[in-house]
Write a protein that binds this DNA or RNA. Structure first.
Lengths: 211, 211
DNA sequence: GCCGAACCGTACGGTACGGTACGGCTATCG
DNA sequence: CGATAGCCGTACCGTACCGTACGGTTCGGC
């Protein structure tokens, strides 16, 4: 399962990106509304062109998810002058970014699309979403956590396990409720939630924690 | 959104339950394989009967999800003799039950079905799954938590917030990864994970915690 | 033993959509 | 200026599936 995904953002011409934008819009508006005819009409192109460029419907779907997921870039975090407060600020920034992305319509749409796709013996979209979402955040957060451990600011057995707890503390039941269309979810206060998650994380993995 | 769902398990005759079982099997085998023809063939009944009993395809889907979701019943937890260790055991039991259910194929299938459904401006299935999954657990756990608080074994501002943190600590990224079809997820050790989640929960909300 | 109700199996209509073919328009290049 | 290539718009085909109709069968009640 090498799955050599290779999309360097410039793989698509502007015209093609316009098509992908149209496809994404249709996905957001109505998850199952991504019909080839609808995309062609929305993008003012012919279906023949769609098939020439993307092969088939699945290719268009994959290109759309891949292209959009890759655009979700977390801001890099400052690592200079590592001390407790700067580390804390970095972690809290990650929590904020994670929550902001997950709550967004685009994230909900992409995750729903990938889940639907995964319900049909296909997991390519799920892999893409996981790779560009949680795993990207994990890759970025991991060195921060390990730097914190090396500086005796954090203690944990494996950074993998620490990251997953962090994920749970931040996301809680927000994502699944959004994916399921729950509208009773109060407009979460990202700032406050990120702060609390960070507090909890340091309470569990801070050096003073008994663990 | 009153949504007066009322299915008292006896609402369906044995024959109808056989049909629902066939429908669920098809859903598990292949998420989008639930066609009326396939269900009719699998259950050895006629399509006409399906339409007579369930109205339309959505009715069949709803009945299947509703009927199956209602069957996921957590065992009641012993509340006699509340002390720290019994409270801890109750909480850990909830963690185990929650993980066991979420990891199961049926839960994954029902959640995927509901997410797919929610991607089409419909949220009825999502509501059913939420109601019978997380919300049921929350309803059962809440009195335990509050009893623990009254006994000075726990401290938290709102049981809602405590429950959501508990959910995050237990579920972490397991559910979303399963929904997305991630196969790299190591066979999680439910016992160990539930214990760690419980440890973390008490570290954050136990009475001795500085909070 | 007859009747009606329920149900099975199947055949059929309607429709939506994936994928293809083709005529026509524009533009870039020689 | 002519030609070739790329693309648009649209018509078209095949298929899959929803929903309905209908003949045949079983079974309980009278």
């Amino acid at each position: 399962m090498a799955l050599a995904i290779k999309i360097d953002e410039e793989s698509f011409t502007p015209r093609q990106q316009a098509v992908l934008t149209a496809a994404l819009d249709l996905l957001v508006e109505n998850g199952d509304g991504l019909t080839m005819t609808a995309v062609a009409r929305r993008a003012s192109c012919s279906k023949e062109t769609l098939y020439k460029w993307f092969g088939d419907r699945d290719g268009l779907l994959t290109a759309t998810v891949q292209w959009q997921a890759a655009k979700v870039r977390m801001p890099q975090v400052n690592r200079t002058g590592l001390n407790l407060s700067s580390l804390r600020e970095s972690v809290e920034q990650f929590a904020r970014d994670l929550l902001s992305v997950l709550i967004g319509e685009i994230s909900v749409t992409l995750n729903r699309t990938a889940v639907t796709h995964a319900a049909q013996e296909k997991d390519s979209l799920g892999t893409i979403v996981l790779e560009n979402g949680p795993l990207t955040i994990r890759r970025r957060l991991k060195p921060i956590l390990e730097a914190g451990r090396d500086a005796r600011l954090l203690r944990f057995a494996s950074s993998e396990e620490a990251y997953r707890t962090f994920f749970g503390l931040v996301v809680r039941d927000v994502q699944i409720r959004l994916l399921l269309g729950d509208k009773t979810l109060k407009q979460t206060n990202i700032e406050a939630d990120a702060k609390q998650a960070t507090d909890h994380f340091f309470a569990l993995y801070g050096y003073s924690a008994t663990q």
